[in-house]
């Protein structure tokens, strides 16, 4: 039996790749990943909008798949790879998803936007040429109270088209 039991008040040292960089930080076992990202790593682009895993404002890409970072403990992400909104752009170039949201007015108050974009990131990895219905289903875990979603859908369609025509974005963003 070799399992290491971290006591409830332990400060667990976590090491993970965040937006392509090696980062370390401490978290007690119960700390939610979203609090680790915002308060330990200082990346406040990821937001908290609810406490029931409904709103998706906290969506990040963990080990290649979009997840709600309020519904993962930080310790679970140890050793993993994390992509947040701050890591979407590359070398000063906006990611096509960011570009799409800007061009198509896919945001108003901006609070849901990072989560929405990370959900779109996952969707477009799996489904590079989604139908409108697929897009709507793909962002169904992300609530937006401002836009009525029409322009978010257009933003993601824009990004999909751009990603298909520009292979330099193909190999992951992290």
């Amino acid at each position: 039996m070799t399992a290491l039991i971290y006591p409830a008040d332990a400060k667990v040292r976590l090491e993970l790749t965040v937006n392509g960089e090696r980062r370390v930080g401490e978290a007690e076992p119960r700390m939610l990943l979203v609090h680790f990202i915002r308060e330990v790593l200082g990346l406040t682009g990821t937001h908290v909008g609810c406490d029931t895993s409904n709103c998706g404002a906290c969506t990040v890409v963990l080990n290649g798949r979009a997840v709600k970072s309020c519904t993962v403990f930080a310790v679970q992400a140890n050793g993993g790879s994390l992509l947040t909104v701050e890591g979407l752009a590359r070398k000063g170039r906006l990611h096509p998803i960011q570009e799409g949201f800007w061009e198509k007015h896919g945001l108003q108050c901006g609070y849901c936007t990072p989560g929405m974009m990370m959900a779109a990131y996952d969707l477009l990895q799996k489904s590079p040429n989604p139908t409108e219905e697929e897009i709507r289903r793909g962002i169904s875990g992300n609530l937006c109270r401002c836009t009525g979603y029409v322009k978010i859908v257009e933003a993601i369609e824009y990004a999909a088209q751009k990603l298909r025509s520009d292979p330099s974005w193909r190999s992951g963003g992290d």
Binding site: R38, E39, L43, T44, G45, T46, H47, V48, T84, V85, E86, L88, A89, L94, Q98, F101, W102, E103, H105, L107, G110, Y111, T113, P114, M117
Partner: peptide
């Protein structure tokens, strides 16, 4: 397209909970 979006789409916004 909106001027303010530059910060929102890059996570460089400042909402109350972002203030430390």
């Amino acid at each position: 397209k909106r001027k303010e979006d530059v910060r929102f789409i890059q996570g460089r916004d400042t909402y109350v909970d972002d203030i430390s």
